[in-house]
Structure formats: structure tokens, C-alpha cells
Amino acid sequence: MRLLFVISLIALVPLGQAVAQSSDLPESVRALIPLAEEEGALHVYGATLNPRQVRAFSKSFNDRYGTDIDLTMSGGLHSAKASEVAMAHRAGVPTGIDVFWTGLISAMVDTGALMEVDWAGHYEADASLTMGKWGLRTHDGHQSMVTINTGRVAADDAPKTYMDLLDPKWRGRIVIPRSPYPWIAMTYALGEQETVELLSRLITEQEPKMLARYADIRARVLSGEFPIALGTDIFSLKKRGAPVDHPDIDLLVLSSSGAFVLASAEHPAAAKLWGLWAVSPKGQATLEEARGYSLAETPGTALNTYATGRRVAHVPFDWRLENHDRLAEIYLEILKRAGS
């Protein structure tokens, strides 16, 4: 009898947890839970995750709401996928995607492929996290960050400002992406003139190695071939003991990525719950643990620790939508001068 009682208690623990966790939710969010359970599944497109990471996401998400929703996550080339989603939306064809988890959405905005969600007003999310009429900011991108190989560069010797990258001692020692992305974000912080000058001089004076893919940039600075890299973060690698670090640069430039529910989502309630989970403390902990992602303002994360006491420039979502085309053209032109 006692054994039965203990088993019953153990069986009730998950239910108790679910009740405890969902009881602190606003009424509008709680109303989504039965709908999401009925939907039963959710597909989030955006980040390349391995199966273990997907399991961690799924467990944390379902634990938060006491649900058993089948979570699928996939990734790939965002701009190509966004364009495909826009085309499918126009043709009324389901894409199978519920949430587009990205920072690059203009293709979908133009075709009305995104659902307008009142995250702050209706679901009581922090208003500073909303991205236009559609998205909820889930983490801050740091593609403008500088990385050093600690085996090759002493902390004292490392660059302290972006302009320090122009020191002749780093000539031929820097690897950067063949992309205007970091420079567009940097423009918001440094101004267009200074950023153009910085990139132009970097290309002509420092002869950096330019690589097309971010994973390759990480690999080169990790192996020590290039002591300095720009355009990639290494928080999760550093945690695993890799000889890399972000130096003590005076400025941190951040641009945001968020959860965008598609207008054609087959599981809209689950999609909204996912966005709200991602910004919750538990969601932030999971993002940080699994992928090294977090909001800069989430206490205790590696990004938050790095950002503390530093000048942080947060590129506004609307500013980026407005300026990216023009700036991309300028910076691509400068990047093309390399090796020509």
C-alpha cells in the first residue's frame, strides 16, 4: 500500500510541475496551452541544431507548459528559405513551418507571410522585446565581435578598439567573413563614415583572409592559423576549453533575432507559446546551454557577462530594415576590392 502511495506521488510530480509552471502565466498565454496541445506539433525553422539540442529544446518547452508537443527544428540558408516561404504564401501552399526564427525577414514582410502578433499587449511579453508588428526578440546576434586565439595573442596585446585592428602588426593575421553583415550592424554604432574608413583600410592595408562561411572562420581562429577573427562568437567553444576568447573591446554591437509566426502556420498556438518560452528564464537558459544564444539583458549568460560594464549598441530592428539594402551594397563593393 505504501509502495502504491509512493508510486502515485512520483506519477503526480510532472503534473504538479506543469501546474506550478503554468500557473504563473498570464491568462491569455494559458488559453493557448489547450489549443497547442490539440495542434500537437510544431516546426521551428532557423537554427541548425543537432538531435541532442532539439531534445533539450523540446523538453524545456514542454516542461514549461506541461504539454507533449512534438517539436521539430531545422535550419539552412535563411534568405533563400524566406524567399521560398514568401512564394509559397502567395501561392497558398503550406510550407510546414510555424515559426521562422531569424533576424532576416524583409522578404516575408513584403508578401504578408508573417502573422501580426501583439506579443506585449495581448500576451504580456516585455515590450522592449517586440520586433515590429510580428516578432519577439529571443537572442542578440553578435556577428561584429572580435575573437582571438589565446595561444597566439596575449590578452594585453589584443585589440582594445576596432581601430586597433588596423595596427600593422596584424597585417595578414585577421580572418573575416565575405559578408557585409557585421559592417551594417557596426554602422549603427560607429557611423557610416567611420565604418567605411575602417573596412576600407582593413581591406587595403591589412589584407585579411576572407571566407564565405562563418563555421570556417571559427575553425581557422581555433586552429591558430589566424590569431584574430571578426564576425563570429565563441562562447560555447570557450566553455568547452577551446583556446579562444573575445578580447576586451570597448564596444559591443548587437543585432537581434527573434521568433516570427508565419501567417500560414498550421500550429499557431504552439508557435506563439514557443516564442514566449524562448524569452522566459527557462527558455533563455536552454538557448544558452544548447546553442550559446541569449538576450544581452538575461542575467548570468555569457553574453550578459561580457556586455556588463561595456558600451553596448543595440541595432534597432526598424533601422536595420530601413538601411540594410543600401549599406549592403556599399560594403560589398569595398569587400570586392580585396585581391582584385
Binding site: 565575405r178 553583415y181 539594402d325 549592403a328 585581391g339
Partner: peptide
Amino acid sequence: APPGDVLVLTIYEALNTVDGLP
């Protein structure tokens, strides 16, 4: 990534835009 472009890089860059349509 040898110095200078080859056509396939032009194609890759055109399709991997920062934002907006490829």
C-alpha cells in the same frame, strides 16, 4: 579562398544576401 573571385563565388554571394530576397 584564393585571392580574387571565381564565378561560383559571385553566385554564392548573390544568393546569400544579408536580408531580403536573394
